[in-house]
């Protein structure tokens, strides 16, 4: 590629970058406006009078508990999903056994269920188990519903791991546990980071399940806390914007952290493997 080609490429890349950052900029403006400016004004105009009150009403709405609940349910569900999916994908792709194809297909059917079909059956089951209004219901639901997609992503990668690696390990006398935890997991760090990011985003932004299974304020998450500002006839969009900004920050930080692991993992662990 010539010099001009590179200039052109960078111009395009920069244009897309601006386009992608715009939403964040917009969201911050949104969170500082009132309903009338939000709906009838120019979306990129600066607010006429900066409405810090939006943030104030969010904090008065008891966001602290919601925030903490969002964080811990997201972390626990994400870790569970990624670990359980890795274990399952490992035996399905790396070990030879008769029913592997069938089991895999069954797992992947889980990808196809529309969430609203599952809502009432799940509620009934949790009711029977006494898990309604208990964060466990949320965590296991998130874990289960994200397993198929996580496994799908892992599949593509696991199948590319050279057989020699495990053969070498087995010859060395490693147990299968050792092989999985000490070799396979570390070398798949980039894809694990990818699935962590994806799971995190899903869990962090989910609200239909929480809303249905949880009724106590002490277990509600940020996304449900946001519903607090939706009224029967009127909705406080400014406060919703403020909640969106507040809830965006932790996920952004986590994303930046794991995003670097995608690249890092390879160079450090592949050598060890």
């Amino acid at each position: 590629m010539g010099r001009i080609g590179y200039v052109f490429l960078y111009l395009c890349l920069a244009a897309v970058a601006v386009f992608q950052v715009f939403p964040i900029f917009w969201l911050i403006l949104f969170s500082l406006k009132d309903n009338y400016e939000i709906f009838a004004g120019n979306p990129f105009a600066l607010p006429e009078a900066v409405k810090w009150e939006n943030y104030l009403s969010v904090f008065q709405g008891g966001i602290g508990t919601y925030f903490w609940n969002s964080i811990w349910t997201t972390i626990v569900s994400t870790m569970l999903t990624v670990l359980i999916a890795s274990m399952a994908t490992f035996v399905i792709t790396r070990m030879r056994w008769k029913l592997s194809k069938l089991v895999l297909s069954l797992f992947l059917i889980g990808l196809m269920i529309p969430m609203h079909s599952a809502l009432i059956p799940l509620f009934k089951m949790f009711m029977e188990a006494g898990l309604i209004d208990n964060p466990i219901s949320i965590i296991i639901t998130y874990t289960a519903y994200n397993l198929p997609i996580t496994m799908m992503i892992l599949l593509g990668f696991y199948s590319t791991i050279p057989r020699e690696i495990e053969e070498a390990a087995i010859v060395d006398g490693s147990s299968i546990h050792r092989l999985f935890f000490r070799i396979i997991l570390p070398i798949s760090a980039p894809v694990l980071s990818t699935t962590v990011i994806i799971n995190m985003i899903y869990n962090w932004n989910e609200f239909v399940f929480v809303n249905t299974f949880i009724s106590s304020d002490k277990y509600k998450t940020l996304t449900v806390g946001m519903q607090n500002f939706i009224g029967q006839y009127m909705t406080d969009w400014g406060a919703i914007g403020a909640t969106l900004v507040i809830s965006f920050l932790p996920i952004l930080i986590a994303f930046l952290f794991f995003s670097d692991r995608i690249v890092e993992g390879i160079t450090s662990s592949a050598v060890k493997g």
């Binding site: 359980i84 999916a85 274990m87 399952a88 490992f90 035996v91 399905i92 070990m95 056994w97 089991v103 069954l106 797992f107 059917i109 889980g110 269920i113 079909s117 599952a118 059956p121 799940l122 089951m125 296991i140 639901t141 874990t143 289960a144 519903y145 397993l147 198929p148 496994m151 299968i176 546990h177 999985f180």
Partner: peptide, 23 residues
């Protein structure tokens, strides 16, 4: 056989109970 079962079980249980039964 045991290892396969052990590694699959958590995923299998979660998916069977929380996805297949509702389905």
């Amino acid at each position: 056989k045991w290892i396969i079962t052990l590694y699959l079980l958590p995923a299998f249980l979660l998916i069977a109970v929380l996805i297949f039964i509702p389905l």
